[in-house]
């Protein structure tokens, strides 16, 4: 049962109960001498300040404006983004950048769970981890994308990429028309997290 299907009262008691269980696990870590409060604070900081989709937006804008960087990104994504000073956990061994064109649209998923290049495009949103998306996007991607608001022309091929623990993906959306004069920073501001997952256009 997803939270959205719960009644208000059920959702409240569910969250209260889960908060209690989580606190109980934290208490065990503390009892064993681990500084769990600091670890949680560090994690929360990374989520809000370091592993943000602005990283990926910067990568996309640079790929749009710098052909040498774009070639590097398409060849070895991990190397290209870490050279920009962006973080990637060691176990995210490969970053594959997928370029959308007039004829090809890429969309990412993790059918087994939730793997994402989260330090570059942000932590996966709720829908990405839901059973509905994981089950359906690989079988009926065009329908799912249309339901999500992205109605692609029938002559556009859709490629679906199923993430694994050591190979992570990001979509390079098509650069919007009439953006020729914009700076890299202004272009980056146009790039949405949803577009880098491949479920929205820009």
């Amino acid at each position: 049962m997803s939270m959205i299907e719960n009644g208000q009262g059920d959702a409240l008691s569910y969250h209260q109960q889960m908060a209690q269980r989580t606190d109980a696990v934290a208490a065990v870590f503390e009892a064993h001498g681990h500084d769990v409060k600091k670890h949680i604070a560090d994690f929360a900081h990374a989520v809000s300040e370091r592993w943000v989709p602005e990283n990926g937006a910067r990568v996309v804008a640079k790929a749009w404006t710098d052909p040498v960087f774009k070639a590097q990104l398409l060849t070895n994504g991990h190397q290209a983004v870490t050279a920009l000073g962006l973080p990637m956990p060691v176990h995210h061994r490969h970053l594959v950048a997928l370029e959308n064109t007039d004829k090809v649209h890429n969309v990412i998923c993790c059918t087994l769970c939730s793997c994402t290049a989260f330090s570059i495009i942000g932590l996966p949103p709720d829908w990405y981890k839901d059973l509905e998306y994981r089950a359906r996007v690989v079988r009926e991607s065009r329908t799912v994308l249309k339901e999500m608001g992205l109605d692609l022309p029938s002559d556009v091929e859709i490629r679906v990429w199923d993430t694994t623990a050591d190979t992570r993906y990001m979509v390079i959306p098509k650069r919007p028309a009439n953006t020729a004069g914009l700076s890299e920073a202004a272009l980056a501001a146009l790039v949405s997290k949803d577009a880098m997952f491949g479920v929205a256009a820009i």
Partner: peptide, 24 residues
């Protein structure tokens, strides 16, 4: 399975305990 529950720029977390669980 039915429709994906989707809103643009959807949240990652819906409660503080989820952040703590994900950290642990």
């Amino acid at each position: 399975f039915g429709p994906v529950r989707f809103v643009r720029n959807a949240p990652v977390f819906h409660a503080d305990w989820e952040v703590r669980a994900n950290a642990m």
